[in-house]
Amino acid sequence: MFFIDPHIHMVSRTTADYELLALSGVVAVSEPAFWAGFDRSPAGFVDYFRQLTEFEPARAAQFGIDHYCWICLNPKEAEDLGKAREVLAEISRFLDQPNVLGIGEIGLNKNTANEAKVFQQHVQMAIDAAHRQAAGASPAMPHALILIHTPHLQDKLKGTRLILEMLKDFGPAIDPGRVLIDHVEEHTIKLVKDAGYWAGMTIYPISKATPQRAVDMMEMYGPERLCVNAAADWGVSDPLNTHRTMHEARRRGHPLPVLLDVFYNNPARFFGQNPRFKPKPMQVAML
């Protein structure tokens, strides 16, 4: 069984974790830009973006894993608008790097006005990026892929609603099929899927979803436009939680083609909208 982990912060993980992922069937990882555990200077962001686009792909390649990433100023550091302006000015040149899939993980943290402003600036940047890459393209040119973080715990429901409203305000410039809204749980998954967006479920030991609840949500809301990720980082997390979720689905009796769809083909379909993403959807053939 092959896996793609659609959201994992490998800069925080050891080389042994890369080996573990490779041994467990992971062929590609997608790493959104995120908070480092402390607030950085604009220069620190440039170093981080270089790590995501230069060093991390080389580290992953040692284990036969394709490394892709997303570039942005994360919402937790978006409160300082001056810093946000400086960081956003640096993002464009990294969007052209060969392992960059789009803009992310943008979103909201505490649902503040400044976070919302920076979120909207990022979305506009995704729209403008596509036009820049295809100079002279028509306004119908699709925007860059967008990966969105939704807030934690008690802020999640309100934040998800705000994010959906802001995206709606962009009108036809935003294609819901090119946006993945992550960290959905039972009270937000329907909002996201009903609006036509891709949804990501994050499997954490304490917060977000457990493998059992994630499979419940797959059963209740359907596997279409749904991804599962470990989002392993520097906190309490586990890079094999995607696999544990597959195991839970398997022990309930869901067949192999379905598992392949959810844990490999869905991320391949979403990311594959960017031609830089190499793995293609596959199917199980019985001999």
Binding site: D216, E219, M220, P223, R252, G253, H254, P255
Partner: peptide, 17 residues
């Protein structure tokens, strides 16, 4: 192939597990 919408086991099996 779509994932089944309902849980694929009987209620008693689910309770047992």
């Amino acid at each position: 192939m779509a994932l089944t919408v309902t849980h694929p086991r009987l209620a008693r099996e689910t309770l047992d597990i």
